[in-house]
Structures are given as C-alpha cells and as structure tokens.
Amino acid sequence: MTKIVGVEIVEHEPDPAPLIELVGVRAGYGSIEVLHGVDLVVREGAVVALLGPNGGGKSTTVKVLAGLLTPTAGEVRLAGRCVNGTSADVLARLGVCTIPEGRGIFPNLTVRENLRMATQTGTRLSRVEETAYARFPRIAERRNQLAGTMSGGEQQMLAMARALAVDPAVLLLDELSMGLAPLIVEELYELVAQVASEGVSILVIEQFARTVLGIADTAAIMLSGRIAAVGTPQEIEQQLSSAYLGGSHE
C-alpha cells in the first residue's frame, strides 16, 4: 500500500468489500446518548484513522464495534452480517481484536499469563509466546514479571503483542499513544503499518496525533457523536489543527 506522492493512480479494480460497517449507529450510557447516528466503513485490508477531540464519541464507537456496548439504533455489520448485540467474547473469537483505551493488559497477571489470555481465541500458548517474543524481545526478558510493574511503553507493547499473536481479521486500536513518549509511539505505529501490509483491517482511534495519518488510507474526524468529515489523510490533516486548537495557530 505504498503511495506515490504526486502521481495520481486511477484504480480500475472495484474497492475491496467492506469488512466493518456502521450504519446510522446510535448508542449511549443509560439515558445519555453519545453516538447520534454514526456511519463508518472499514474495507478489507484498509487502515482507517478516527480522530477528534475528547468527548466526541470515539471510544464509544470502539466499544460498539467490540461488542461491549449494544447500539440502540442502526446496524453494526461484520463482513456483511449484522452483529448487533453479539457479545464481545464471541466477536473476539471471530477475529475482532481490540486494544482498549488505557492499557489493554491485566496488571496483576504476569506477562506470560497475559499472553495466555490471548489463547482463548484458539491459538496455542507456545505459538503466541513465540510470535510475541520475536516481535518484542524486551517483553521476553520480563515474561515472569507482573505486567502492571512494567513501563507504559512496555505495557502497550504487551497489548500489541497479544493482539498480533492471534492473527486477527480486524484490529481496533483505541488511543495507543496515550501517555507514551513520541519515540515509542512512532515504533508502535511502524508496527501497525507493517501489520496493515499483511492484510489486517485496522481502525485507529487517536486524539492528538499526526503520526497516525502517515499510515492511514482513510481518515475521519468525529465531533459530538457524529462523523464530521471523511477523506484522505491529506484532506483531513488540513482540518485537524482547527478542530483541536480552534485555528488559533500555524
């Protein structure tokens, strides 16, 4: 999926089929509706970046996709089939892998035990460990350490390692960069790009990051529970700083 800057490539082959679709999805917590009709498509093998300020409903969108929250209206489709109300563990076993906001790890389990939790999708522990340690040698050194005592970057690596070891069809990443040093974020996104090139469909949620635009095929801005803009990363980047800083700089 390399892009040749400055050369317009006209694609003749049809777009790949949508793997994930949100159609008019409304969802919320109790009486408070957070998503007011969200439409979003992630095609097979594509990387979609969902950006926007806090409170816009990005994490809620991830929760709906992951099956942690059932929409009150609209449809969530996975490979064309409606999966509204399918529970998160079933979706996970179907190949939807989510790294939630915060650290997607169990702090009071060791690194090995964390990886063991990934085996519930059917991959053998030895294979999960092999893949994870090969990608992240730093984690291999800490395999018997409690995950909560590692640094933030290492914890996020563990979460990624867990996600990648299970060969997901879809990867949902919520605020991967939160609280991490830019260098580590860069490393992590290089990895995401690599995974994408292997054909995994990826939805990346970020609040403040141009970083992610570099690897995305499509980007969207989410404001107040709606998709405010969709376009190429270049188009979206133009609008970004005004969305965050109110156009008061640059």
């Binding site: 942690l68 563990d89 996970a92 892998c97 939630p100 939790m117 990934a118 299970v166």
Partner: peptide, 9 residues
C-alpha cells in the same frame, strides 16, 4: 471487559 475482548468467558 478486557477478558471478553480477549475472547474469554
């Protein structure tokens, strides 16, 4: 909920 995201029950 992370257990469920891992495919656990």
């Amino acid at each position: 909920s992370l257990v469920r995201l891992n495919g656990g029950r």
